[in-house]
Structure formats: structure tokens, C-alpha cells
């Protein structure tokens, strides 16, 4: 009987990106912020991420990518969520981003969009704000 609901996050990596440091750091950051964070591991398919997000009933999917493909990945994950009727799950992203990428992601409804070197406090704050609007 937990009085307040815990924020659940699925931290996901799609495609061929091997760089895991950012994701591993955030796993600890989110845990220390009192959230429950589930990691998919690397090299996931967009459909796999969408399915995992549904079964884990997460509030947010956090996409991490350092190959410069976040726009493509976000598009695919969004499509996969739509296919299983779970568009309401929010998406945030972080990694290697150009200004054009950020604009495109924001237009898609993907928020956060933190570049490398972002302070972790800002990321946690963003997720909390995102959930406070619920």
C-alpha cells in the first residue's frame, strides 16, 4: 500500500549502438531518485521496446543513443507503440543530438532531448515535471 505511485521508466537502446555508459549511469541516477527503472539492454528492436513498455506498464520510455540515430529510432518506437495501441506512453530521449534533431524530436512529441554532458539533475527534474502533469 504505497501512498504515492512510483514512476516507472523503461530505459531502452535500439539499433546497433554499443555505447552503454550513458544508459548505465542513468540507471543509477533514476534509482537514486526513487524511481523504478527497467533496462532493456542493447540492440533492441522498436517492437520489442514497445512490447516491454506495455508489459512493464511504464510511464516513460527513455531512449538512449549515441550514433546520431535518435530521430529514426524515436519514429520507429512511436510507430510500434501505435501498432499496439499504447501511444499514451511518453518518450524522452538523450544522446548524440544536433539542433535539427532536437527540433524534429520535439515536433514528434519526444521531450527532454538531452545532449551528452547534460547534468543528471536536469534529466530527473524533467521526468518529474513530465509526470506531474498527469
Amino acid at each position: 500500500m504505497n501512498k504515492e505511485r512510483k514512476i516507472r521508466i523503461l530505459l531502452a537502446k535500439s539499433g546497433c549502438d554499443i555505447h552503454e555508459r550513458g544508459a548505465l549511469t542513468l540507471l543509477n541516477v533514476f534509482r537514486d531518485a526513487g524511481m523504478e527503472v527497467i533496462y532493456t539492454g542493447r540492440f533492441q528492436s522498436p517492437e520489442g521496446i514497445a512490447n516491454a513498455a506495455v508489459t512493464e506498464d511504464v510511464d516513460v520510455i527513455a531512449l538512449s543513443d549515441l550514433t546520431g540515430s535518435l530521430v529514426i529510432i524515436a519514429k520507429q518506437v512511436k510507430a510500434a507503440l501505435k501498432a499496439i495501441d499504447a501511444e499514451d506512453i511518453k518518450i524522452v530521449s538523450g544522446g548524440l543530438l544536433t539542433d535539427e534533431d532536437v527540433a524534429e524530436l520535439e515536433a514528434m512529441g519526444v521531450t527532454g532531448n538531452f545532449g551528452t554532458g547534460s547534468p543528471t539533475d536536469a534529466i530527473v527534474e524533467h521526468i518529474k515535471e513530465l509526470m506531474a502533469g498527469e
Binding site: K6, L27, G34, M35, G41, G48, A52
Partner: peptide
């Protein structure tokens, strides 16, 4: 779960990701 923050890092899925789809 962390006894301090109440948060948790749930990592069992990483090994089971073959079944995600």
C-alpha cells in the same frame, strides 16, 4: 529496491530480451 531512495534498477529483462517480441 533501494532502502534509501525506494527506487530500483530492474535488470532481469536484459537477459530475457529475446522474448520481447
Amino acid at each position: 529496491s533501494s532502502p534509501y531512495s525506494g527506487g530500483a534498477f530492474l535488470g532481469d529483462r536484459v537477459r530475457m530480451s529475446n522474448h520481447n517480441t
